[in-house]
């Protein structure tokens, strides 16, 4: 076994190493897939895989309790961004029904040093974030949809990520019962 002990303290790593490693992933995907849509999908999938694990770390570390409405969840998501990426997105544009809101970023560590070529305007460069949010919400029994409404990489003033609550997920029913 190659791994011995995992210490429980939160260590930090240089954000540029992170930014450039993510950049290398995206550019590798651009080489491997012909279709930009497939790259977007793959980034979302990677994010999902990260999200389902990261939420466990988040809960274990913060001893967070269950959320009783989406506003509480939004606060937790905001805190998670602070904890994992060192940025605090603003919570904005709540829908009247309270089932949709936006995370608005003025900086995004994933896109530092990034310029999107004109012919890649369909690339959702930071799509990994959507996947991560979807994955982590799913683990706490929330089915959400997540997409970018604005992106600084495409000339918008801010980067805005929209989250919509779809439904609560229930535990699986045991086999052989209805």
């Amino acid at each position: 076994m190659s791994r011995q002990n995992t210490r429980l303290d939160v260590k930090k790593v240089n954000s540029e190493l992170f930014t450039l490693t993510y950049g290398a992933i995206v550019s590798q995907l651009m080489k491997d897939y012909e279709n930009v849509e497939d790259v977007n999908k793959q980034l979302d999938r990677m994010g999902y895989n990260i999200g389902v694990r990261m939420v466990e770390d988040f809960l274990a570390r913060t001893n967070a309790g269950r959320c009783y409405d989406l506003r509480e969840t939004a606060d937790k998501i905001q805190y998670a961004f602070k904890m994992y990426l060192g940025i605090t997105p603003a919570l904005t544009n709540w829908s009247a029904a309270g089932d949709e809101f936006s995370l608005t970023f003025d900086t995004n560590p994933l896109t530092e040093f990034v310029e999107l070529p004109d012919n890649y305007q369909n690339l959702k460069y930071s799509n990994i974030l959507c996947g991560a949010l979807r994955g982590s919400c799913e683990m706490v029994q929330m089915d959400v949809s997540c997409w970018f409404v604005q992106d600084q990489l495409k000339g918008d003033l801010a980067t805005e990520l929209r989250i919509k609550f779809n439904k609560r997920l229930e535990d699986a029913i045991p086999a052989g019962e209805d």
């Binding site: 466990e56 309790g65 269950r66 683990m139 706490v140």
Partner: peptide, 11 residues
């Protein structure tokens, strides 16, 4: 005695 603990993620 049987003790039951469920994480928020349903584990």
């Amino acid at each position: 005695a049987l003790h039951y603990y469920e994480s928020l993620t349903g584990v």
